[in-house]
Simulated scan of single mutants.
Amino acid sequence: MLREERHQAILERLQLHGKVIATELSQILSVSEDTVRRDLREMDSLGLLHRVHGGALPKSPSAAHFEDRQRDSVESKEKLAEAAISLVRNGQVILMDGSTSTLRVAERLPHHLMATVITNSPPIAVALAAHPKIDVVMLGGQLHKNSLVNIGAATVEALSKIRADLCFLGVCSIHPEIGISVPYLEETYVKKQMIEASSEIVALATADKLGTASSFIVAPTHALTYLITDHEVPDETLQPYRQLGISILRG
């Protein structure tokens, strides 16, 4: 089997099963495990999958620039945001991490809501500037231009002095075994501190983020309190998350 044919077969199996295991691929493709590992390394470098120990997982779709992600899965993100609003209460201190999904939540917060929103996302702060009853606290730091969030030691230090009731976490990738992961190392430190600073953690994840992995681990998946995802995601896909004690909401 030619190299290109192996790569295509690997991608097809990855799409079908949500993961590939090197030892199984070796048998299916009738090649050595060294050849399979070399194929997986090449495919990882091309952005076709995410190589992990013993195999590979689907690549996260979320490494694109913020403005490009704004145009993706627009209807799905709006539905997730509507489901997220049900978790918000008057008087809460709410941490909002930067993502296109959490921005949708900010844009839909009810005008009667009285709360404090703390965010490292300039787009979210701007979206809430005209809200009549929400106090907005903007976390400083260095602007990560690709994700449009503030990061760095100043951001983490500010978060260490906060105790929030609820955190809407931006999620690039989530896998029940691998955990919550992101493509940029600098973002992990801020997200970790947001999780530590909050009583309840909410992740909004469109279907294409489930079962995927990025390069840097933020936290184990069971750190989440709620996972909000698309209505059409099959129950069998969500069952591993439920087994971790996570409450599932559908948009």
Rank of each mutant, 00 (worst) to 15 (best):
S99M: 04
T100Y: 11
S101R: 11
T102G: 12
L103H: 14
R104F: 11
R104H: 14
R104T: 10
V105L: 14
A106G: 13
E107V: 12
E107H: 10
E107L: 15
L109W: 11
L109M: 11
H111N: 12
H112K: 14
H112F: 12
L113H: 06
L113Q: 07
M114F: 14
M114S: 15
M114T: 15
A115M: 03
A115Y: 01
A115C: 08
T116D: 08
V117R: 02
V117W: 00
I118C: 06
T119Y: 03
T119L: 04
N120K: 03
S121K: 09
S121F: 06
P122N: 08
P123E: 08
I124S: 11
A125L: 05
A125I: 03
V126L: 15
V126M: 13
V126S: 14
A127S: 13
A127C: 11
A127M: 10
A127R: 08
A127P: 06
L128G: 09
L128Q: 04
A130E: 15
A130S: 15
P132S: 08
P132M: 05
K133V: 02
I134T: 06
V136E: 02
V137Y: 07
V137F: 06
V137I: 15
M138N: 13
L139D: 02
L139G: 01
L139K: 02
G141I: 08
G141P: 00
Q142M: 13
Q142I: 13
L143W: 09
L143D: 05
L143S: 03
H144C: 04
H144L: 09
H144G: 00
K145Y: 11
N146R: 13
N146E: 10
L148D: 06
V149Q: 00
I151D: 00
I151G: 02
G152E: 01
G152A: 00
A153W: 02
T155W: 02
T155V: 07
V156I: 04
A158F: 06
A158L: 02
A158D: 00
L159K: 01
L159I: 00
L159P: 01
L159Y: 00
S160Y: 04
S160E: 10
S160W: 05
K161I: 04
K161A: 13
R163G: 04
A164T: 00
A164I: 03
A164R: 04
D165M: 05
D165K: 10
